[in-house]
Amino acid sequence: MRSILSIIKGPFMPSSLFAKRSAYRGTARTSLRARLHVLVLLLLTLPATASPLFGPIAEVLRHPRCMNCHTVTDFPRQGDERRRHAQLVMRGEDGHGAPTLPCAACHQDTNIDHAGVPGAPHWHLAPLSMGWEGLTDTQLCQTLIDRSRNGDRSIDSLLEHMRSDPLVLWGWNPGAGRTLPPLTHPQFMDALQAWRAAGAPC
């Protein structure tokens, strides 16, 4: 925050730099309006200064095993390269695919190993309100805890969901040939608990 404030308050550029580049000296003091402009740009482009406690959680949530069905599009994705799901599979009104080609046409309650088809109970896409694509850590965190978007879950019930939901757990049992999220599931739970203990900061 200090560096951001210094843009508004102080000399914009270190004077040592300008001492060597006299040609810029005349522009060393820029208008407040220009400084605000830069500030806005910086705020837009700077990495979100999210809670460090949420960072490891975000890394898990951003893994393709989670993200491929937490899309903001009207279709799911596939694979670590996150290509669009083949066969023109659609989100459908309820996240269970087009009624004429539902997720359940292929995806069972368990992985079908002989076919490489992943499966878990109630296999479906997360609602658009839980779409995570393109979010900063902070935004992801806020989306996660926003009860208007997370299925009206308290932090506690969110953790319970992460602990026990079979579709969440599938992420750590995705079948042969699929990569796993960066944390183990116990590590993920530990990270969530530490985050909750700190007041679930974003």
Binding site: P99, T100, L101, P102, A104, A105, C106, Q108, D109, I112, A115, V117
Partner: peptide, 13 residues
Amino acid sequence: GQPARACVLPCGT
């Protein structure tokens, strides 16, 4: 009544 792929549907389920 829903379309399903029989090649990945375990008969026991």
